[in-house]
Computed example of a mutant assay.
Amino acid sequence: MPKATETVLEIDLSALEHNYQYIRSKIKPSTKFLGVVKAFAYGNDSVRVAQKLEDLGIDYFAVAYAKEGEVLRDAGIKSPILVLHPIPSGFDTIIERCLEPSIYSEHILDAFLEAAKKHSQKDYPIHLKFNTGLNRLGFKKAEVARLIDKLTLRKEVKVVSIFSHLAATEDKNEREFTLGQINTFKEIALEVGERLGYEPKHHILNTSGIINYPEAQFDMVRSGIGLYGYGNEAIIDAELRPIATLKTIISQLHILEANESVGYNRAFKVDSRKVTATLPLGHADGIGRPYGNGNGQVFINGKMAPILGNVCMDMIMVDATGIDCKEGDEVIVFGPQTSAEKMASRANTISYELLTGISQRVKRIFLDS
């Protein structure tokens, strides 16, 4: 791999392929695979990731908002794209770009029916989202009859899938709750099919669910974080390969003596002679202030270097004492050998937040075998 000469996010598309094939191996050949590429493909690059996954034969994509789907269509992505959290201001874009909305409330249903009518649509594909316990978005089971009665009177749309979202598939202590969600979803699916008179696709599993609840594959599964190399469990992480490596360089080295301080608010004070390295990376790049004061660390020539003091907007300072290094040397923030999950946990957060927070000003570099 090339040495960094600036702050870059290196994205290994062969690792993405490995993760896709590993997850695909856990599902039946007949089960469809939906890849979640929202939030710039979890902070990577949604276009390049989607292009690679489409080449690998993925069946579906999901994004959060219409604009994200529009970007993929503009890049030539042809696969079906589910918009997980559509809002009425994006309905024209959804229809014009052949995106497929999640319908999660009566308000959204009514608004989309009017948009579909305005665009003279017939049997436009929609997905019905049901709330089985996450309590975020979705219809309740008690609303099925009224919902389907309304849909059967309209010709503008057709239900192509029903789905729900599990709350705690990675937590073995919540197995009873998860099984309850799955059973509720089965009951909803049965009633929807009977009332519609046909069977749309059913899907409920996320990455951890694919591993821990294989009996609930239904017609399709959804994977987001797993594609990017993280499985929320050590046993799954061991089988996956993080696709992103955040690299930077040493801008300057300083020798500080006892009683000197580092950075804003003098948050770190030196008690003995130290060597510090200043790096061109800060909270504007996605390394937030919670990583300061020793909660975060980087690796210089294989040696751990804790972050000293407060994270600045464009810079962090790290302890390079005892490390053989010089200005211009490469620094690894996270990657396959230095997990983003471990770094995030030290700042009391999760890999999702760290990965998706990497600023778009950080240059992306792509590797592929």
Score class of each variant (00 low, 15 high):
residue 281 L to Q: 04
residue 68 E to S: 11
residue 216 A to M: 07
residue 269 K to D: 05
residue 346 R to P: 00
residue 81 I to H: 09
residue 289 R to N: 12
residue 220 M to T: 04
residue 230 Y to F: 15
residue 270 V to N: 04
residue 269 K to Q: 12
residue 341 E to P: 03
residue 129 K to M: 13
residue 249 I to E: 00
residue 16 L to V: 07
residue 327 E to N: 10
residue 258 A to T: 13
residue 88 P to L: 07
residue 330 E to F: 03
residue 63 V to T: 07
residue 56 L to W: 10
residue 7 T to D: 06
residue 42 Y to L: 08
residue 100 E to G: 03
residue 291 Y to V: 00
residue 27 I to W: 08
residue 16 L to P: 04
residue 234 A to Q: 14
residue 178 T to M: 09
residue 115 A to K: 01
residue 186 K to E: 14
residue 165 H to D: 08
residue 322 G to H: 02
residue 160 V to R: 13
residue 217 Q to F: 01
residue 364 R to Q: 04
residue 156 E to G: 03
residue 345 S to Y: 05
residue 23 I to H: 13
residue 215 E to W: 08
residue 7 T to K: 11
residue 305 A to W: 03
residue 168 A to V: 00
residue 85 H to T: 11
residue 63 V to M: 07
residue 45 D to W: 11
residue 73 R to T: 10
residue 42 Y to E: 05
residue 258 A to S: 14
residue 19 N to L: 11
residue 349 T to I: 02
residue 74 D to H: 14
residue 151 L to I: 14
residue 323 I to F: 05
residue 54 E to C: 04
residue 38 K to M: 10
residue 203 H to K: 13
residue 295 N to C: 01
residue 230 Y to R: 05
residue 194 E to R: 13
residue 318 V to Q: 01
residue 223 S to C: 13
residue 12 D to N: 15
residue 309 G to T: 02
residue 126 I to H: 00
residue 101 P to F: 08
residue 265 N to T: 04
residue 50 A to I: 09
residue 226 G to M: 03
residue 119 H to V: 00
residue 207 T to L: 05
residue 54 E to A: 15
residue 238 A to T: 11
residue 277 A to E: 01
residue 198 Y to G: 04
residue 324 D to I: 09
residue 261 S to Q: 09
residue 249 I to W: 02
residue 3 K to H: 12
residue 76 G to V: 12
residue 112 F to G: 00
residue 211 I to N: 04
residue 311 V to R: 00
residue 96 E to S: 12
residue 193 G to A: 06
residue 147 L to E: 08
residue 188 I to K: 05
residue 293 N to A: 09
residue 252 Q to E: 14
residue 60 Y to A: 08
residue 290 P to N: 12
residue 233 E to N: 14
residue 97 R to A: 06
residue 287 I to Q: 09
